[in-house]
Design a binder for these strands. Structure first.
Length: 473
RNA sequence: GGCCCGUUCGUCUAGUGGUUAGGACUCAGGGUUUUCAUCUCUGCAACAGGAGUUCGAUUCUCCUACGGGCUACCA
């Protein structure tokens, strides 16, 4: 049987990095096994609708390189792929459950529900519905259904336990008496997640349900639903949670969680895929740098971790830096253009721009950080008083004069030649070491630390270098 | 409170019934760079605790502790 998985987010406005990880593992598993992955939008909560959320989600996936075989934008044979457009389907299927006594209508008001919960909480009892409406007579049910608002609840068996086998955690079991009579259809006629999810996974031919661990406790309800329909169970794979540094579930409160935020902060999509891929999964060997295809090749559910993983920004930074250092310069140039333009840097001299970026990429972990390493090549330098003292010293002035003359008379400003000129300037002026190099770098670049002087001069060019060297008298 | 799941360096993790418990990030120190960064080398640092099984447990079982998740007409 061919494999089919799904990523089923609710459209809350942005793609959560935890969502990215879930989507990624689904994608990797599908591609690894010649299966299919679908995108299904779980928009059954009317009150949480966010305008443009779905479009944003789809475009983020596009940016990051994860493609779906079926979904809102590409269609498919199992649509619609919005749950809000599948209401008739849920209506049909809930009838089957009511008929076979696996589900029942409930007319209890939310006030009453709140009250029994409060009481249960006071008495330290498990909090669940008291089945007040389960024993209603058929005649009463029929008349009230015409006149009152109601929900449909799942009837959990009184006895026994639900057992299922999670592909990551193994056997999981829970007593039926611990499970609440879950609402399946809300008063507004929309299904709850639990119901829509099971019906859709079945109808869409999903073979493997891979989702976050937060769903583990409600999986028994889903299992019962499959059994009530007499449907074959999919395989369940519950992925470990992504965590804040304090080990709680990764949340907005403790920093960025939107993939879009990381992208706009200058993290590469390649890094995000790679980094998040390694959170909760590990290859056979100790390799850490993987592109998407390599991840597909290596991925296996057997190597998925059981425990949660802290999202460590330090390591993310390191990894992004690795990508920046290894990537083709042309690729980086393309991505960095808008950032340089925003910073007001004139990049029309493409040879200079390329050399500047080549220098900056070695020194940063994100794209925007390149700006600070590049600005000295483009704009005039404002020296602080302390630095002016260094530049106007007798020895500095001697060195600047000799060096600028050498540059002026040179026809070939290769780095190797420049190095030679500096050396000669040192000998001729009898200035050595720190006293030689520091002032030159300072006058040319405005910083005491930075790129190799020969590199600075070669990027600046003859004219600009001489200008900067002779600016201080 | 109840239920479910989890626990190897600070973090991501490898690993096995007998290993000097390995790698990566971070941090510290050395080398390269007459600067910085890169790179490189070295170092610091972990099997939650207690029983049991066993000749031997980090590895298997149980208990405890701790952590997390769930406990909605949210997903």
């Amino acid at each position: 049987m061919s494999i089919k998985v799904r990523f089923a987010p609710s459209p809350t406005g942005y793609l959560h990095v935890g969502g990215l990880r879930t989507a990624l593992y689904n994608y990797l598993y599908a591609k690894k096994n010649d299966g299919k992955i679908i995108l299904r939008i779980e928009d059954t909560d009317q009150s949480r609708k966010v305008e443009g959320a779905v479009e944003n989600l789809i475009s983020t996936f596009k940016n990051i390189g994860i493609e779906f075989d079926e979904g809102p934008s590409q269609g498919g044979d199992f649509g619609p792929y919005f749950q809000s457009q599948r209401l008739d389907i849920y209506k049909d299927y809930i009838q089957k459950l009511i008929l076979n006594k696996s589900a029942y209508p409930c007319f209890c008001s939310s006030d009453r529900l709140t009250k029994i919960r409060e009481k249960q909480s006071e008495n330290k009892e498990p909090i669940k519905y008291d089945r007040h409406c389960l024993s209603l007579a058929d005649s009463e049910i029929n008349s009230r259904m015409n006149n009152e608002k109601y929900v449909i609840r799942l009837k959990i068996p009184n006895e026994g336990e639900v057992i299922f086998y999670d592909q990551v955690r193994g056997k999981v079991s829970i007593e039926c008496k611990e499970i609440d009579d879950q609402v399946l259809i809300k008063t507004d006629g929309f299904p709850t997640y639990h119901f829509a999810n099971v019906v859709d996974d079945y109808l869409m031919g999903i073979t493997h349900v891979m989702r976050g661990e937060e769903w583990l406790p409600s999986t028994p309800k889903h299992v019962l639903l499959y059994q009530a329909f007499d449907w074959k169970l999919p395989k369940f794979i519950h992925l470990p949670l992504l965590l804040n540094p304090d080990k709680s579930k990764l949340s907005k409160r403790q920093g960025d969680v939107a993939v879009e935020d990381y992208l706009s902060k200058g993290y590469l999509s390649e890094t995000l895929i790679n980094f998040v891929g390694l959170l909760g999964w590990h290859p056979k060997d100790d390799r850490e740098i993987f592109n998407l295809d390599e991840l597909i090749n290596e991925f296996s559910i057997k190597r998925v971790q059981k425990s949660g993983a802290v999202f460590d920004k330090e390591k993310l930074n390191w990894m992004n830096g690795q990508y920046l250092k290894e990537m083709k310069i042309s690729t980086i140039l393309n991505r960095v253009v808008p950032i340089f333009e925003d910073a007001g840097i004139d990049i029309s001299d493409t040879r200079k721009f390329s050399a500047v970026v080549e220098n900056a990429r070695q020194r940063v972990s994100t794209l925007p950080e390149m700006i600070e390493h590049s600005i000295p090549f483009y704009s005039e330098i404002n020296f602080i008083e302390e630095d002016k003292l260094i530049l106007t010293s007798e020895s500095s002035q001697k060195v600047f004069k000799v060096l600028s003359d050498k540059l002026l008379n040179s026809n070939d400003l290769q780095e190797i030649n420049i190095k030679q000129y500096i050396k000669e300037a040192g000998i001729e002026t009898n200035v050595k070491g720190k006293d030689l190099f520091l002032p030159i770098r300072l006058v040319l670049f405005g910083e005491k630390h930075g790129p190799d002087i020969a590199l600075i001069i070669s990027i600046l060019g003859k004219k600009e270098s001489i200008k900067r060297l002779t600016n201080f008298h």
